[in-house]
């Protein structure tokens, strides 16, 4: 084949997928961007190039508050998940005998495949007033009255952390297992103690795995509507919850679009901040 015919044929194969992505992802995204610059007058939509929706985000306290709440929850979840998942991945990689490792890892991430609506509901069963934890604590005589666990930020964070610990255990394990044991041996031979070996050798080498997992956690967490809606109740709203309120009750598509654009802006900033260590292609 001539290079030209070869190229045309290659494009022919790629074309259906590219067209699909452009038609159902790129175009909707651009329309959403244009929508964020439109305004509602009464119930009719007026297209234009107005920044009114973005100005509203800074002026209305509940909108600015939602952005803060989302950021606080997401940062807390990301940090707590990494801190809990790292030792777990470490133990599976270096303490569990090799022949049991794959099984241990499979078991550690199996509930990852629970539907996310069902997973949040299951946490509600555990955290409810008359649920598992309160019942056990009262049974043990540790408390006399049920404590409020569900419908709080604590519940939202717990539900998220549960999910992301599994995800991060997987990414960090994949990183740890690739390390040659020689690094540890060399550090030990040179007189480093266990902590120094970890701090100066293992941690820097596993940073890409940590950052990649943390970035995924950040992106998935800040965009999730289900977990805060089921577990957090309506005590405080996150950005996705506010977006859904705009869509439902008020049909305010322009404001919802502006909020979505802000959400994407935050994710882009997180990407720029972590790009140095990100290895998305290695997933």
């Amino acid at each position: 084949m001539t290079p030209r015919a070869e190229r045309i044929r290659g494009w022919g194969f790629a074309a259906p997928a590219l067209l699909w992505t452009v038609a159902f992802f790129v175009v909707p995204f651009l329309v959403m961007g244009a929508m964020s610059l439109a305004t509602l007058e009464g119930r009719t939509l007026v297209w234009g190039l107005s920044l009114a929706n973005y100005v509203e985000l800074t002026e209305k306290a509940y909108l600015a508050r939602a952005i803060m709440v989302s950021l606080e929850i997401t940062v807390t979840v990301t940090v707590v998940s990494v801190v809990l998942a790292y030792p777990l991945a470490w133990i599976i990689a270096f303490r569990v005998p090799a022949r049991w490792q794959r099984l241990a890892l499979l078991l550690a991430i199996l509930p990852f495949w629970t539907s996310y609506v069902v997973r949040s509901y299951a946490w509600l069963l555990v955290l409810a007033r008359e649920g598992m934890i309160n019942n056990t604590l009262i049974g043990l005589g540790l408390i006399s009255e049920p404590i409020t666990l569900a419908n709080t930020r604590f519940a939202t964070v717990t539900g998220f952390v549960h999910f992301f610990v599994m995800l991060l255990t997987l990414t960090i394990y994949a990183n740890l297992i690739q390390l040659s044991p020689n690094y540890r041996r060399a550090a030990m031979d040179l007189g480093a103690n266990a902590f120094q070996t970890f701090r100066h050798v293992i941690l820097p080498l596993t940073l890409p795995g940590i950052v990649t997992g943390a970035f995924l956690t950040f992106v998935l967490c800040i965009g999730d509507y289900v977990t805060p809606q089921i577990l957090g109740g309506n005590t405080e709203l996150t950005v996705p919850q506010v977006i859904m309120v705009q869509l439902g009750r008020r049909a305010d598509f322009p404001l919802a679009s502006a909020l979505a654009i802000v959400l994407m802006g935050i994710v882009t900033l997180a990407y720029i901040a972590s790009a140095r260590w990100l290895r998305l292609d290695r997933l």
Binding site: F24, F29, F253
Partner: peptide, 17 residues
């Protein structure tokens, strides 16, 4: 590219169109 955008935003864009 669609992997980097949250499901909510993918759904919202399609809903608008």
């Amino acid at each position: 590219a669609p992997l980097t955008v949250s499901y909510l935003i993918v759904g919202l864009g399609l809903l608008i169109v």
